[in-house]
Simulated scan of single mutants.
Amino acid sequence: MAIDDDIALLERVPTFSVLGREALRVLVIGSESKALQQGEVLFREGDVADAGYVVEIGSLRAIGRERLMQQVELSRGTLIGETALLVQTRRPMTVMAAEPASVMRIPRALFIKMLQGYPTVARRLQQTLSERTQRFVNDLAKVRKVLDVSEEPKDVPPAKASEPPKADEAKPAPKS
């Protein structure tokens, strides 16, 4: 792909869309393209993550052990490993090519160096990620309200307001 085509691809990625063409050009020039054959593993769950990937061509499949993340299809323009661009982490899923595919590998060191070179871009990205995190927290609060249950199990009737014990119930009977 030509540099301008790669920049256009990154502009479609929500995380990268706020960076601007100059910063994206740095990422494109410093990134590397990796071709994958169908069934080839890009990385495995638990691997140390030192880069993010953007799907250029084809599609990939992410498979995790957790029931909620069994299988996810990843197509052109999908960013894989956003967190790995900023901090050291481990891969939460195994990702493999669902068909012949190509990905752009963006190393964390390159991404951080780009942010250091473009402080305005770094602030914009920080603001964008903060807003996204706040929306996520708000959504979680809504989910919590829906799922929130009282302390009492539903199949057990609530306890009646307790009355003070009667004098003869307050103390155990003396042993004879």
Rank of each mutant, 00 (worst) to 15 (best):
V103S: 02
T94D: 06
R108L: 11
T89D: 09
R91C: 08
L86S: 04
L79N: 00
L85V: 09
L110R: 01
R76C: 05
T89I: 13
V95S: 11
R90Y: 12
A97W: 08
L86K: 02
V87P: 12
S102T: 14
R105M: 14
P107D: 02
L74Y: 07
R91S: 11
E99I: 05
V95A: 11
A98C: 05
T94M: 11
E99H: 02
Q88E: 15
R76K: 07
F111W: 06
R91Q: 10
R108F: 12
I80Y: 03
T83A: 14
G81D: 05
R76T: 09
G77I: 06
R90F: 13
V103L: 04
E99C: 06
S75E: 13
I80F: 05
R108V: 11
L86A: 09
R105T: 06
T89Y: 12
P107N: 02
P92W: 13
E82K: 11
A109N: 10
L79Y: 00
V87T: 13
R108Q: 15
I106A: 07
A109W: 10
T89C: 15
M93K: 13
A98N: 04
A98I: 02
A98F: 09
I106R: 02
A98R: 07
T83L: 14
T94P: 04
L74D: 09
A84Q: 03
L86D: 01
M96F: 09
E82N: 07
S75W: 08
R91I: 12
A101N: 01
V103H: 01
M96K: 08
T89V: 15
V87E: 15
L86Y: 07
S75D: 05
T89S: 15
A109R: 14
V87F: 15
P92Y: 12
Q88D: 14
A101V: 01
S102G: 02
A97Q: 06
R108H: 11
A97T: 07
M96A: 09
A109L: 14
A97K: 07
S75F: 06
M104F: 01
I106E: 01
R105K: 08
L79K: 00
A98L: 06
A109D: 13
T89H: 10
V95C: 13
T78C: 06
A84G: 04
V87G: 12
S75C: 10
S102D: 04
T94L: 09
T94C: 09
M96Q: 06
A84S: 10
A101S: 05
P100D: 11
T94S: 13
P100V: 12
R91M: 07
M104L: 04
M93V: 13
V95H: 10
E82I: 12
A84F: 02
A109T: 10
P100L: 07
E82C: 07
L74P: 05
R91K: 08
F111G: 03
A98T: 05
L79D: 00
R90C: 14
T78V: 12
L110F: 04
R90Q: 14
E82Y: 12
R108Y: 09
E82S: 05
M104P: 00
R105E: 03
